[in-house]
Write a protein that binds this DNA or RNA. Structure first.
Lengths: 218, 218
DNA sequence: GTCTATACAACGATAGAC
DNA sequence: GTCTATCGTTGTATAGAC
């Protein structure tokens, strides 16, 4: 609420103290995890002081929630949008989203994968409120991917379960990123994505040869 | 080294102090994560005292490595063996392994998923030595699953890439467990597994009909 | 190998001046 | 809203008697 007003009132000036704190916390949580990142570290890197941080965020958990809220807002401009621009064909756009995570692994030498996945495993048991926000992040991802799948449905059998496919893509991506980061190798990621590709190719095959006239348009 | 002697010398008596410490640490790391678990908590729950713990494990990281070593030894008796006994058909045995994780999610109300996956994301960036042991755990899992796939290769196309399939199963399982734990719901897990089932069914279809006349059967 | 006592740094969080 | 100073606790790890 105050948040939106700030975004309007400060169109293109330097970021507010609050935003610097959230962004810094996001970066540190991403790289080191939630528990391994101390408040003092966030203060030092952001240049803010403890009085300011605790003015905005009464507890560390509140700061985590602001970070997760920011991730929700970054999904479109940072993940989905760029992926859409990198590919023109419907099915390629789906895999362009996955490829985005590979680019991140590459750019960070396997340090950074999916920030939501990291936090999901670390805080789900102990922090119920952030856990709900993590669900919303996953929901947003699957919503977007579902849309991409729908746009590609011409190449899929008419009875394809799109929700199921979106869940499969998210599950496999999360696991593949986990393995790549652990092995410090693209191989498990690439193999997983390739296997998904084959699955989609099989579906395409079924979609074009199976049904009756259905998708004989052009 | 001393480890094996102890196992032989104490066939069925109560566990050694060392073993109690490792097992307790394993349970706490599993439920709470590595960073969120304090040494004092391990000492309290195991009944050991700090002098004993630091006698065996000079640092907390050394204890983590002993835990990861124990996981390697538990893979067969706790994961693969039971799965093999729960199913008789080759392909069913593969999915019985995945189902084992569902049973664990169910038994723990979604608190516990895959212990290796949890630790992988939490410590890979900061703890190189444990990271190597996590790789060995993943390797062991994929070795076992690869064997299960080979045993089922009669139902698969002859050119099936078995390694790739094993990686896909691990990636998807890890992601599916992550989502189930986050949502506190079986749905993402079940949907992911169902999608994998469909992938295997497609492969079976190709395996039996392919060889010659493409897919013009029936 | 096991126990008690404790060192010392880092943690999350607070108080109060400005 | 920002700053400094600091509280009380917990963190990992040690020392030394037995």
């Amino acid at each position: 609420m105050v948040h939106y007003i700030e975004m309007i009132d400060q169109p293109s000036t330097e970021p507010s103290t609050r935003d610097r704190i959230v962004t810094t916390a996001r970066e540190l949580f991403f790289d080191q995890g939630y528990n391994a990142t101390g408040i003092s570290e966030i203060l030092k890197k952001s240049g803010a002081h403890s009085g300011s941080l605790y003015h905005y965020f009464p507890t560390k958990e509140d700061l985590l929630m602001a970070v997760l809220q920011q991730y929700k807002e970054l999904l479109q401009p940072m993940v989905i949008g760029p992926a859409r621009e990198r590919a023109s064909q419907p099915i390629d756009r789906i895999f362009a989203v996955l490829h985005g995570y590979r680019l991140l692994l590459e750019a960070t030498d396997f340090r950074l994968g999916c920030p939501i996945g990291n936090l999901a495993l670390e805080v789900s048991n102990s922090h119920p409120a952030p856990r709900a926000l993590i669900c919303e992040n996953f929901d947003g991802w699957m919503d977007q991917v579902r849309t991409l799948i729908e746009e590609a449905s011409g190449s899929l059998p008419p009875d394809t379960d799109i929700d199921r496919l979106a869940v499969l893509l998210l599950s496999t991506m999360e696991g593949a990123v986990m393995l790549a980061r652990t092995y410090r190798s693209f191989e498990p990621f690439d193999q997983s994505v390739l296997a998904l590709r084959e699955h989609f190719e099989q579906l395409s095959l079924l979609g074009t040869t199976w049904s009756k006239p259905k998708n004989l348009e052009k």
